[in-house]
Design a protein around this nucleic acid. Structure first.
Length: 464
DNA sequence: GCATGATCATGC
DNA sequence: GCATGATCATGC
């Protein structure tokens, strides 16, 4: 790397020294943090999206940008990421987005192995600079809230290794065009750059072109970084508290060997397969209230050996737990609902960034119970599920049709279950009076997208 | 039996 | 008070 001054105000070979220097940014606006270093006209700030990182590199850390295989601070092995926070509904601060790491070179990554991977080389030690995003402000007026030097704990790094292996295996199998963030737990493969045909990339072992993707830390994982490191350091600064979670993996040794995190979960559950809910309750239910709505979800957590209400790995990996009840013919009784949408908001969205895409294109954990001919309920299995990319395209069609009908004043007549084999739209409200306004000013009952019961049936039946 | 509409119960 | 996950109810 080349420096912009003769003598840097920090030692670029020492991670702790870089961290200490970066730490002084806390509480400053970007503009103020750098004004004493370099004159206004040479700030290199063009007002473009995503350039705040480059701005700090040039004007605060005083070195020239590079985008090679090496970490930003090459000698220290430190990669710099400048990343936004947003105010959550509960008033706390959380991550605004995932952290995007290096771009996946499909042709090259398949030749790598984990220990010598370009990913690990570049992203083992992250200098994270969190600032508060505020849509109404000039970017240089954003406030830098806090800085941390992030290194993965051993269990997380092992899960990230498994994620990496799974992503690379899919590319080796010629399925780079079917990658999804839901394939993996903490480390995702997110789309990067424009998604038009011109940005499609070649992949090995298939002639189908694939969207450009990058490794990323999922948004939920970034929230975990925030709550675990920074809340402890600065409990009074409005950072969300540590979640009420419990890790499923208690010790790294459980993850060694050939089994993945998912396989370990499924194995643990499999010993209860075929037992009735009452029998399982005897074994692990304790004081659980079997009238409660969340009873079947709670029971599943007990089968997994957990006492608290949330699995830490699921929280960090954005895994959504859903209960599916089958009738005696092993068919799901009900379609599966997602949160309702607001008519006036959904029409402003683009599919690639839509709430529905974020809600559905992720990893699910289905806990499946089945009824017998006497109406007795028994536990069948657990199952991880991510929507296949072809089916996601069908969801996209339904979503676009929904938006176009709302725009043209037909919000009362949205896609029905017979219009798509994957999903449909129907009411999702507390009662008839629970309405929301359409763009043309009507009050209509709240509605949401649902996965068709029949479609769920196929997905559950085809799963091994 | 299924599509569709409607609402319950919990928890934040 | 409301969002959310889950399930009930009706009628074709």
């Amino acid at each position: 790397m080349s420096y912009l001054v003769d003598k840097l105000p920090y030692d670029p070979q020492n991670p702790e020294a870089i961290y200490s220097y970066a730490k002084k940014l806390e509480g400053s606006k970007f503009r103020d943090a750098c004004s004493w270093v370099i004159s206004e006209e040479s700030t290199g700030y063009g007002g473009n999206k995503g350039h705040l990182g480059q701005y700090l590199e040039k004007n605060y850390f005083l070195y020239e940008l590079n985008s090679d295989q090496n970490p930003d601070f090459k000698e220290a092995g430190v990669e710099l990421k400048v990343t936004p926070l947003k105010k959550l509904k509960n008033g706390h601060l959380g991550s605004k987005e995932r952290i995007v790491l290096n771009i996946i070179n499909y042709m090259e990554v398949v030749k790598e192995d984990w220990n010598t991977s370009s990913f690990l080389h570049k992203n083992s030690l992250l200098l994270l600079i969190f600032y508060l995003f505020e849509s109404d402000k000039d970017r240089l007026d954003y406030l830098i809230k806090f800085v941390t030097l992030w290194e993965y704990c051993s269990v997380d790094l092992e899960i990230i290794r498994q994620d990496w292996e799974r992503i690379v295996a899919k590319i080796r199998d010629g399925h780079a065009h079917e990658l999804s963030e839901g394939d993996s737990l903490y480390l995702g493969a997110c789309t990067k750059g424009i998604t038009s045909a011109s940005s499609l990339r070649d992949q090995p072992h298939s002639t189908i072109k694939a969207k450009q993707r990058a490794f990323c830390l999922k948004q939920k994982y970034v929230n975990y970084i925030i709550s675990s490191t920074i809340a402890a350091e600065m409990p009074t600064k409005g950072i969300q508290n540590t979640l009420d979670v419990e890790p499923f993996i208690k010790d790294i040794s459980e993850l060694k060997g050939a089994r993945s995190f998912e396989e370990i979960i499924l194995d643990r559950l499999s010993i209860y397969s075929g037992q009735t809910v009452d029998e399982i309750h005897e074994l692990v239910g304790g004081e659980l209230n079997n009238d409660a709505k969340g009873y079947y979800a709670s029971l599943a957590l007990r089968m997994l050996g957990l006492k608290k209400s949330k699995i830490e790995e699921f929280e960090k990996g954005n895994v959504d737990v859903k209960i599916i009840r089958l009738n005696q013919n092993a068919t799901p009784k009900e379609s599966m609902s997602f949160p309702y949408f607001k008519y006036k908001e959904i029409v402003e969205e683009k599919w690639d960034n839509s709430t529905l895409l974020n809600t559905i294109d992720k990893k699910f954990f289905f806990v499946i119970y089945q009824e017998d001919e006497f109406g007795i309920l028994w536990f069948k299995k657990g199952m991880f599920w991510t929507i296949p990319s072809d089916d996601l395209k069908k969801v996209e069609r339904v979503w676009k049709e929904t938006v176009s009908r709302i725009i043209s004043g037909r919000a009362a007549d949205l896609p029905r279950i017979s219009d798509s084999e994957v999903c449909h739209v129907r009411p999702h409200a507390r009662n008839k009076e629970d309405t929301c306004e359409t763009p043309d000013g009507q009050q209509l009952i709240k509605k949401s997208f649902w996965l068709n019961a029949k479609y769920l049936n196929e997905q559950v039946a085809n799963y091994n």
